[in-house]
Design a protein around this nucleic acid. Structure first.
Length: 298
DNA sequence: GACAATGTTACAGT
DNA sequence: CACTGTAACATTGT
């Protein structure tokens, strides 16, 4: 589900609820999520019981994000590495007095969570932190320290954060000019800049007026500069709006992001272009549905 | 039933 | 080696 704006929004919306709270107990309902199978941490999977036991009594300290990964840190130094992949959700729900779930004024319906797609429940002092994941692609991995996450090779090969001071226009232009691959593939590979997925890749290309099916190094310097600005502008706008709730994505408090209302091409194939009124073209590119305006994107 | 869905990785093939 | 396409992960909705 989530691209960078969604993951960032989960981070900021969750932190105020979690910070300072202690974990009373943890229950894992789907072992693969915490075992590391299918990730770079295939070796030495921690058993479910150990995952649950290690987190008991831990106090939340902070949440950080690297690309589309979240790192939850505890005061003791222990940490969780989380990737939501396509349909993961991390939602906090306050207890109602008497130990039940809160409802008054809460944006999510009573009894909606936990549900059959809730695979981890963290019982905290004032509420529950729930990990839901319809397609079960995501993972939540335990590490004794943040340093071990960093040393574990999880972030190898990732490009720069879009707001890293080192990620300059010059850097972007230079790196893109080195790559002959299809623009969409390069942007989504996370190897130059991280955070773009299928939604924001199409949106950024539309905003910059370039077709995503061109070769990256075919773009002129001017086009690359436009694209650099568009990538940063689109991601920033989406973060401000709390991300795009197209399907499964929810913020940490269970509410939806608003950016879906501002999407100009994603999911709009066949509709009219907001710029020129022409019909938007939809096609497959690198196995992903892609939408462009033939008139506005060259 | 076929197909597609916000991500990522592995692998076969050119 | 560079790159492309496909499958896989598992489920739901159209």
């Amino acid at each position: 589900m989530p691209e960078l704006p969604e993951v960032e929004s989960v981070k900021t919306s969750l932190l105020p609820y979690l910070k300072g709270q202690k974990v009373k107990s943890v229950k894992v309902w789907y072992p693969k999520l915490v075992s590391g199978k299918g990730t770079k941490r295939d070796a030495d999977p921690l058993k479910v019981e150990e995952f649950e036991k290690e987190l008991e009594g831990e106090e939340f300290k902070g949440i950080t994000r690297r690309a589309k990964n979240l790192i939850i840190e505890f005061v003791s130094g222990k940490a969780l590495l989380i990737h939501l992949k396509m349909t993961g959700q991390l939602v906090y729900k306050e207890y109602r007095k008497g130990g039940d779930i809160a409802k008054g004024g809460h944006p999510i319906q009573e009894n909606e969570f936990p549900n059959k797609h809730t695979y981890i429940t963290f019982e905290l002092e004032k509420g529950q932190l729930l990990y839901n994941d319809v397609r079960m692609f995501g993972y939540v991995l335990y590490f004794p320290t943040v340093a071990e996450i960093m040393a574990g090779g999880h972030f190898d090969g990732l490009g720069l954060e879009p707001y890293d001071p080192v990620f300059t226009e010059e850097y972007f232009v230079k790196e893109m000019q080195k790559r002959r691959g299809v623009l969409k593939r390069v942007l989504m590979s996370q190897e130059v800049v991280v955070g773009l997925g299928n939604i924001y890749c199409d949106e950024a290309c539309f905003d910059a007026g370039v077709r995503p099916d061109r070769a990256a190094n075919d773009l002129s310097e001017e086009e690359l500069k436009r694209l650099y600005a568009s990538v940063r502008r689109i991601l920033e706008l989406a973060i401000e709006m709390g991300g795009s709730s197209v399907n499964d994505y929810l913020l940490g408090d269970g509410s939806k992001g608003n950016y879906a209302n501002y999407l100009k091409v994603y999911m709009r194939g066949g509709k009219s272009c907001v710029n020129c009124g022409g019909e938007l073209e939809k096609f497959k590119l690198n196995g992903r549905t892609t939408v462009v305006c033939e008139e506005c994107q060259k």
